[in-house]
Design a protein around this nucleic acid. Structure first.
Lengths: 229, 229
DNA sequence: CAAAAAAAATGACTTAAATCAGCTTTGAAT
DNA sequence: ATTCAAAGCTGATTTAAGTCATTTTTTTTG
């Protein structure tokens, strides 16, 4: 695996920036961003923020993956989204003015930059392109979540898992999927045991292959078919 | 029931405006809004827009209720939200620049105003208060949908129905809930037969009372308890 | 590297909720 | 008022998926 460590990242040379909401920033805007951000190294399973806390700024993922989740009754996690490099995490609650309803925790070692609330809101207020990007992003996610709800309501666990694996293949971009069975079950919305049994089925059907915890997608098209898409 | 009919509504005297995103509009802004809107009367079960079409503007509900839904595999509806007077419908897709992923259909006779896309976007661009209101709204809804997903994944149908009835009680504001059993099932995310059986249980437990199709909430606290909240 | 802890896997059993089929009531339209 | 289709309701049956208990494998840590 890639060696990660605490290092100072410059926005101007950040590989993740081009895919992010800051992608359109010009030189002056980029160096302004640079001055207002701090870089931090996170270990695996470290929280960025928890439910109920007040947002103090936004997190920009430079490297690594982060799960966004809520907790149900008995504290069981429901993973809503898995964010990767280039994604900005934690800005939704800043606009609603409320405490976080979701929590964010690293799934692996990460390098993540932090931008202070007032600095970020200043940028949003003065930069129309950024603002439009954010509104587009919020709207798109809203539509995605409508689909998510519909899938939860109408699809079987088998179909949801097939779809989730195809999504994870995109998120892990060719790398093997590396999640605990529990996290995966909490993403699909099922029991861990059920998830494990279904993974075996998929393995028997040559859709995937497992290397200990890691999952390799062999037949993405087959998975999407199975998901009913 | 209240008699509804095609009538011209003035934004200045609109009873729904104060609760809407336009609530903060001053006199000049209100008359500008007035000039750019048209009023329309809708019969029950009339679509405002359908999935896949491109947004041409936004809908502001003056009177009546509207269901927002997606369709799964075999066309089965999943109701995501039920909008009432004061709510603005259809603006999310305008920011994403994509076709509607959801559809909207009236649940009863409605009076609904329409504001053209360019006029609305102009207002958003020039009015910071409106813009902030929209961003707050988008963010709040995003959080609501995270909770919705978690409920679908982790709660039983019984719990979800109890919660849905409590929500509907707020939406219908004291009026009796008036939805087909099918719509209600598509909101809760279950089969119509299952929903009917559970309604009977709730009736037996004196939580609700039915008057033909209409449902009266007798014990909202009891319902919320049952929902596990 | 060994030991301990955590995660993964398997088996047996239970149950919530879907499906299918048929019957009854309601309300809309003539 | 009568008719007819749509919606509501009930019963019987099936099944997908959850739960609980135990074993095996993997991962972590001293």
């Amino acid at each position: 695996m890639l060696e990660k460590s605490h290092k100072h990242v410059t926005c101007a040379t950040c590989g993740a920036k081009k895919d992010s909401l800051f992608g359109s920033f010009c030189g002056a805007e980029t160096s302004n961003l640079d001055e207002h951000k701090t870089c931090n190294y996170y270990k695996k399973n470290q929280p960025l923020f928890i439910e109920g806390s007040l947002p103090r700024g936004v997190f920009c993922i430079n490297e690594g993956k982060v799960k966004i989740f809520t907790r149900g009754e008995e504290g069981k996690e429901q993973i809503i989204h898995i964010a990767k490099q280039g994604e900005i995490v934690g800005f939704r609650a800043m606009f609603s003015g409320e405490a976080y309803k979701v929590a964010a925790t690293t799934l692996e070692e990460c390098n993540i930059c932090f931008i202070n609330k007032t600095d970020f809101l200043d940028m949003v207020d003065t930069n129309q392109v950024l603002r439009n990007g954010i509104m587009r992003e919020l709207s798109k996610e809203l539509a995605d979540r409508a689909t998510f709800i519909t899938n939860m309501a109408q699809k079987s666990v088998r179909e949801r898992l097939a779809f989730a694996l195809a999504m994870l293949d995109d998120i892990y971009e060719g790398e093997m999927i590396n999640l605990t069975r529990e996290d995966m079950a909490n993403f699909v919305g099922t029991a861990t045991e059920t998830l494990i049994r279904l993974l075996k089925d998929f393995k028997d059907d040559n859709l995937i292959e497992t290397h200990a915890r890691k999952i390799e997608i062999l037949d993405k098209k087959g998975l999407l078919d199975l998901a009913g898409l």
